[in-house]
Design a protein around this nucleic acid. Structure first.
Lengths: 341, 341
DNA sequence: CCATGTCAATCAAACGTTTGCGTAAAAATA
DNA sequence: TATTTTTACGCAAACGTTTGATTGACATGG
């Protein structure tokens, strides 16, 4: 493989000159530039990024940390979408994307720190969702550039982009309450994840606004597995006063809910209304089409990556915490008309 | 940030000794090792991978090239799953994963070559699906280690892992033919992708076996967009002799097919049978549950990554071309009993 | 003619590792 | 004790770049 020295020799200049041609320095004459570039072209020279990184102390690479296990992470379209957004920006800036993957949360934190300590990346984007993410604290301690996708503790050097989970939870609850529902189940995810908290908080807000109490027998906390949604929905439907509506923390869970309801030969929305979250691609295609929340995942990725790039370029990043709005997509899983109470 | 020299100074040894401690060389006494390690621990030293790469000429990183545009790539669960498998192995080998992303195919090839020429990666895994992938030829020319996920041209230095698309296509067709269907539509993807070819080939094989001709009015080639599936299904159903069964090239397409059928107030499977491909998570949850093909995507990722690692380690890789078997998952979208002809 | 300035290119050090070779001291052997 | 072998470590070069300092050529102005 050719090095800068080979180019130099062939073009009859010094390596430094070649380097300056690459960086398009203006202290090189156009004539020389042309000659050097021609040589590079001819032999197919590409600068060795490793060597360059060593001296510039920049790897031109961003780390991407999925702080859920890879397994569950990728099963959700969320991650795909957000990666897509991030890729787009990263690519525009001629950066690369390094994935930190691991089996579990602890391991992932380690991988992330390793990437950083080993100087493989210039900054990291955290797809964080945990309540007490000690990774964030470590990064702060090291004064290392990072931005988190998801809700992060507010703080001076914390940059984050998130969707309005509280508002969204509120909107869902209000929608159902307006339709006359009072026995509304909330099929929550694990309380390890902030977004679950937030959606519940919004949910509760709406109840307060309506002057109503939440019946805790309808609030179920489980993990984000379809199977669990199925299982608990069946349980809910066995109650003496079964819920008339079920809010699932995400669309996958809603699928489980659908299955349980249909298995009981009940009708959606007539017997039970269902709302999901995420507007996954399949939601419009199941029957009945699912009422759900659409969040701008791709845009969140874009924003996160752009914040990161600005940070690295030393630009001022404003605002530090960005919240993108979601949208309630009303389909047929809740019925059209308000039911009477 | 600490360097090997700092450690050396603190441990009162030379940098070379520290380096040898890191690589656990046996020419260093246990006593010295202990002392040096203690120092590293204390100051939180991590070797700079960039510097190491420069001299060892190995970046301990694998490149991952999605040779579809990032956009469509990530919208399919296929990529998520295969990445999951790859990650798993890569992680076990203490390697990292670098993503090559781009807006389009051309750009992606460039990105890939760039990764390589710039020495960022030791090898690449190609999520290739194109018919004439010139990227493969370039890689061969450079004698660069790569393995492709998907069908690759057979060749001496070509390593690949794929699922048995031909067999799977055959199985689907046979299933439908056995059920008595004769007007079977094939909703194919773009002919740029090999897997589309292969599935069709298997499909055709079954027809030949049954001594039947394929009616080409039922064979439609489009791209892998749900919307197109919807559109063309509607067209198919308008025909004088509409198909009694539709084989969609993947599950997403099948969703579009479902929508079109339902919109026409036809029943699945009574009026039209449907088969998908991939066994996406939602297929068991739509109504009726979709008959589809399950492919071992995760395992394909595992295999691809393991082949790559073996290649890099100089191990013999056998077999060079691996084909993992798929499975026909029979649900309710084709009806139970053979229909009379 | 000398001093000064500009331009275009080179020199050489540096980045943080690894590793072949050299060498004292210790251990083994004669 | 003298010689050889082994052990444990250090020296210095190398990897392929970047970049501040330097140089030499040439032009400009006084």
């Amino acid at each position: 493989m050719y090095t800068i020295k080979d180019v130099a020799k062939l073009a009859q200049v010094s390596p430094s000159t070649v380097s300056r041609v690459i960086s398009d320095s203006k202290q090189i004459s156009d004539e020389t530039k042309k000659r050097v570039k021609k040589v590079m072209e001819e032999i197919g020279y590409h600068p060795n990024m490793i060597a360059r990184s060593l001296i510039t102390k920049s790897s031109q690479t961003l780390g991407l940390v999925l702080s859920r296990s890879t397994e569950t992470a990728f099963s959700s379209p969320f991650f795909s979408e957000v990666i897509r957004g991030i890729s787009k920006v990263v690519q525009n800036h001629q950066y690369s994307l390094l994935l930190a993957t691991a089996e579990n949360y602890k391991e992932e934190g380690k991988q992330c720190m390793k990437m950083i300590m080993e100087k493989r990346v210039d900054g990291v984007i955290l797809l964080a969702s945990r309540v007490n993410d000690d990774l964030i604290e470590k990064l702060l301690l090291d004064d290392y550039p990072f931005v988190v996708v998801g809700r992060a503790p507010a703080g001076a050097r914390i940059y984050s982009v998130n969707n309005d989970n509280i508002k969204a939870g509120y909107n869902v609850a209000r929608h159902l309450l307006n339709l006359g529902h009072r026995q509304i189940a909330f099929l929550n995810g694990s309380n390890e994840y902030i977004f679950c908290h937030d959606r519940y908080e919004g949910f509760a807000m709406a109840f307060r606004e309506f002057g109503l109490e939440i019946d805790q027998t309808y609030v179920i906390e489980t993990d984000l597995q379809q199977e669990n949604a199925y299982f608990y929905t069946k349980q809910l439907l066995e109650l003496d006063r079964p819920p008339t509506a079920i809010f699932a923390i995400d669309d996958m869970m809603a699928l489980g809910v659908y299955r349980a309801i249909k298995e009981k030969n009940l009708e959606i929305p007539d017997d039970v209304a269902v709302v999901g979250f995420n507007n996954d691609h399949f939601t419009s295609l199941i029957s009945p089409p699912l009422t759900t929340i659409q969040i701008p995942i791709y845009e969140m990725g874009i924003n996160a990556a752009e914040m990161m790039m600005d940070l690295l370029k030393g630009k001022e990043v404003i605002p530090q915490q960005r919240i993108l709005s979601s949208k309630l997509i009303i389909r047929n899983s809740c019925g059209g008309k308000p039911r009477k109470i």
